[in-house]
Amino acid sequence: MTDITAPPVREPLLQRINWVDIGPFVALVILAVAGVLINPDFLSATNITNVVTRSAFIAIIAVGATFVISSGGLDLSVGSMTAFVTGIMIMFMNSLVPSMGANAIIAGMALVLCVGALAGLFNGLIVTVGKIEPFIVTLGTMGIFRALITFMSDGGNIPLDRSLREPFRPVYYGNFIGFPIPILVSIVVALIGAFILYKTKFGRRCAAVGANEDVARFSGISVGRVRTLAFVIQGICVAIAAICYVPRLGAATPTTGQLWELQVITAVVIGGTALRGGKGRIWGTVAGAVILEMIANLMVLSNFISEYLVAAVQGVIIIIAMLVQRFSKQP
């Protein structure tokens, strides 16, 4: 019965807290406490900085994935797409070195953003114009992008030109007012993402399309356009992640970004966004990405988990995190 017309009641404070919103952060804190207990080195500035910096790629891509998933889509191609756009970017920059020198980096960044957006557009158009399930479309493009990077590298790797390594290096290893650049980049990406998703008409429409496509259509929303744009945003996020990725190891290989799609989806779901679409939670997603990287870090720092069982323990922790969220929801 849904139609109880009782007088307005002020909900108690505890019930007004939205557990889905803060759940991931609670999990993060619990994990951090557990981390300190396992190994005091965990809380060292270097370790925390390393872990958070490493989670930047997944976090940035996952912000885009929050849009796609929120709009009722799914993108399995992000890992291969990262490898592909990384490869394109490096080859392009290498070819410009003779004429432009270090400025090739700027050109490469501009190009990779376009390529990322186009790759996302490609996914989006096949999904919306071709009316094919996003799961299948992106499974297909996942294979395509992976094959392209393998082809481009002949199965080996595509190294960044030596003259570019030093000028490009700070984009991953550098600091700005004490914060590593990748962390700042992911915070900026998340801020922009949150603004778009929560404070713009497009974000509103995105959630509406994911929550109920029919309602969206009957409300005059162009479902196809919204979905396609979500994929384009995903592509741009992949490109931003690629920009931070290239200076780290200075190469693209066929194993770049392998299985990242699963980490990205896991981060989004841990963050509280429903896989079936609807309301997206950008900050939860970012927390989810950090949680994943933190779990992996703790596995290495702990002395009592067999190297053979690491994956199992990670899986158990993720499932527990989801169960805690599930049951801490208001009844």
């Binding site: 780290r248 290495v300 720092l301």
Partner: peptide, 23 residues
């Protein structure tokens, strides 16, 4: 001191080495 899997992947090796160095 330690032996862990990094799946013959440079990114995972990077992360693992950072963790070794912290530990």
């Amino acid at each position: 001191l330690d032996i862990q899997y990094a799946n013959w992947n440079s990114d995972e090796a990077f992360s693992l080495m950072q963790d070794y160095l912290a530990k």
